[in-house]
Structures are given as structure tokens and as C-alpha cells.
């Protein structure tokens, strides 16, 4: 009898230990932030609505270690082979405006590069949602001395910025053995609303369509995207011509351009 009790006792210990091990294993897969940022729980809630996440090295976020120019921090996100990607959210935990951009790659490659503004050192993350609804998260710490977000745009101080507002210039590169590269620039102040006396004024939506007018991909952008934004996207080799870019800013100004 006493042996039995002892055995049951040890069994209990053993099973609870293995339960802890199992929980810890799942934990490492889903919610231990490799960037070890105290903000993870908050952004998990605000940016991804507490939906299921996996930290995944195949979501490659390239930012420099040090911002250097906080108004122009380059970032690129490339998602490796983890299946079809429905949406990519790019955000910075410690930015006054965390949300930078949502990219819906649709029929093009899950790759996007652009520049954005930061106010202080912060994790920069990209979360890519696969068809099963799971967010695959990658990221990198960015060191910054500040000043990017509360400074007015350069163009808001220039008299003639309205003349070029919404102008689009672009180029498509055909490349051997890799996808075609599309780069386009849109003239826009992209004011954050955080600089005194200058309201938020930014591009909200960009849609990339093929020559039949079918949607290939779209981007929802937010205030932290840099002034006169410059986007790079990758498309299937030698397939597209006569692409168009349409969209609008938060004041209803339209963007509409046949890309070169």
C-alpha cells in the first residue's frame, strides 16, 4: 500500500514534469520572442489580435543595426518557402505609430522593400499569415537615436509640394534567373501628424493591377512610411507589362498611373 502511494506520488511528479516540458516546448515554438522585447505581448495583441503566431526565421527582415537617418530607415521583408502568404504586416513595437504597412502579395512574390521613419530604438517586425491563419513572425532590433517621427516632412516646408503630389515614377527590371524587379516612387509628404501643427497626411492604399485591370497585389500604408515613398516588389519573370498603380491618400487624393 505504502509502495503504491509512493509510486503514485512519483508518477504524479513525473507526469507534471513532462507536462511542464511539453508546455515549454510549445511555448518556444509560438510565443518566446527571439528579440526578447518587453513589448511583444502588447504588439501581439494590438497588431495581430492575439492570433496564433510562430517565430519563423524564414520571414527575413533586413534593417540596419543602427538607423543613422531616422527619417529613412531601409527595410526589406522576404518570406521564404512556407506556402502561400495572404498578408504581411510590418510594424515597430516602440514607434509612436507602430503600424507601418500591410502588404497583400496576392499574385506576386512575398517580398517588399521600402523606407520608414523611427523615433527611437525598437524591434522591427514582419508577420506573414499563411492560409491556415497562422502568423509567421520575423524581426530585427534597430538602434536609433531618435528624431524621425516628430520632425515635419521636408516637403511640408516647400511651397511647391502640391504640384507633384501623387506623381509616380517607376521602372521594371527583367532579371536573369530571378523574379522581375519593380520599383516605383510616389511623391507624397507622408506627414505623421506628430509634428506640431501639421496634420497626418499619408497614402492609405496602393493597388497593383495587370493590363486587364486584375488585382495583383495591394498595400495598406501608414504614417511611418518615409516621405516620397519608394517601393520595391518582385514579380514573376517576363510575365507582366502595362501594369497600373492606383490608390489614394487619407485626404482622398487619387493615385493612378500606368507603370513604365
Amino acid at each position: 500500500m505504502s509502495i503504491n502511494i509512493k509510486q503514485r506520488f512519483y508518477f504524479k511528479i513525473f507526469s507534471s514534469l513532462s507536462l511542464i516540458a511539453a508546455v515549454n516546448f510549445v511555448y518556444a515554438q509560438t510565443s518566446v520572442d527571439p528579440l526578447d522585447a518587453p513589448t511583444w505581448e502588447t504588439v501581439h495583441k494590438t497588431m495581430l489580435f492575439n492570433e496564433e503566431v510562430v517565430f519563423d526565421e524564414r520571414v527575413k527582415v533586413v534593417v540596419p543595426d543602427v538607423a543613422e537617418d531616422p527619417m529613412n530607415v531601409p527595410v526589406s521583408v522576404r518570406v521564404g518557402d512556407i506556402g502561400e502568404i495572404e498578408e504581411i504586416r510590418v510594424f515597430a513595437d516602440l514607434n509612436p505609430i507602430q503600424k507601418i504597412l500591410n502588404f497583400y502579395p496576392g499574385k506576386i512574390e512575398p517580398f517588399i522593400a521600402f523606407r520608414f521613419k523611427v523615433q527611437q530604438s525598437t524591434p522591427v517586425r514582419a508577420a506573414a499569415r499563411t492560409k491556415d491563419g497562422v502568423w509567421h513572425v520575423g524581426g530585427h532590433w534597430l538602434d536609433a537615436t531618435g528624431g524621425g517621427c516628430t520632425a515635419p516632412s521636408v516637403s511640408s516646408g516647400l511651397a511647391n509640394w502640391e504640384d507633384t503630389l501623387g506623381d509616380v515614377k517607376s521602372r521594371l527590371w527583367s532579371r536573369k534567373d530571378q523574379p522581375d524587379r519593380l520599383r516605383f516612387r510616389i511623391m507624397h509628404p507622408m506627414d505623421t501628424g506628430l509634428a506640431s501643427g501639421i496634420p497626418a497626411f499619408y497614402i492609405e492604399l496602393l493597388e497593383l493591377k495587370d493590363s486587364n485591370g486584375d488585382l495583383l497585389a495591394h498595400i495598406e500604408s501608414y504614417q511611418p512610411v518615409s516621405e516620397n515613398p519608394f517601393f520595391s516588389l518582385d514579380l514573376e519573370s517576363n510575365r507582366y507589362q502595362g501594369l497600373t498603380l492606383t490608390g489614394h491618400d487619407n485626404n482622398g487624393n487619387q493615385i493612378n498611373k500606368v507603370l513604365q
Binding site: 533586413v62 540596419p64 531601409p74 527595410v75 522593400a113 521602372r171 527590371w173 520599383r183 520595391s232
Partner: peptide, 11 residues
């Protein structure tokens, strides 16, 4: 000229 984004030029 090759169409590289800034983050690609970095590396």
C-alpha cells in the same frame, strides 16, 4: 541601375 533596394545595397 540593377534595381536594388537600399537594404539590399547594405549587404
Amino acid at each position: 541601375d540593377r534595381g536594388l533596394a537600399m537594404s539590399e545595397a547594405l549587404t
